[in-house]
């Protein structure tokens, strides 16, 4: 992100904060929208939220690191979530997970060198009828075998 982009986004952040000002328990919704805007929770953004919502930085850090859905590091363009819930586990989701790691040369939680994909293992995605399942962005792919992975990744 260059300086100009950052500046633009920080201005959008002002609007997000403004929309939630005075709302009870505003921190979580603000963090969600901030992460959607930046792709992660940059320190500058956290500082601004802290100042404007009057929440200490320590508390924001506490919340941001408690929930696995928030990230303090930039993510790739697409996040691949591999479901590691029970139904997927008993249907060998591990093999699908390993195949993605191998094909993209990325470790769980890591981002590819070209910044295109971030890979995360996730708890149940709620599509147990289609196990094993992965989700890329908001697209769900089910009933997978490791050999399906290359074709799916090509779409992005």
């Amino acid at each position: 992100m260059n300086e100009l982009e950052m500046k633009e986004k920080m201005e959008k952040l002002d609007k997000i904060i403004e929309n939630h000002r005075g709302q009870q328990g505003a921190l979580m919704p603000v963090l969600h929208e901030t992460q959607e805007l930046f792709g992660y929770l940059p320190e500058e953004a956290q500082k601004k939220i802290s100042k404007e919502l009057n929440v200490p930085m320590a508390e924001i850090y506490g919340v941001a690191t408690f929930y696995s859905g928030f990230t303090l590091k930039p993510r790739g363009e697409h996040t691949i979530s591999v479901c590691l819930g029970t139904a997927c586990y008993v249907k060998n989701a591990q093999a699908v997970y390993e195949r993605i790691q191998k094909d993209l040369n990325v470790k769980p939680g890591g981002t590819t060198a070209d910044n295109k994909f971030t890979l995360v293992g996730t708890r149940c995605l709620g599509c147990c009828g289609l196990a094993p399942v992965i989700m890329i962005g908001e697209d769900v792919y089910g009933k997978l075998v490791p050999d399906d992975i290359p074709d799916i990744l090509k779409k992005y």
Partner: peptide
Amino acid sequence: DEGDPGAFMDR
């Protein structure tokens, strides 16, 4: 917040 892996009725 249907967190139980394996449950998707609430969804």
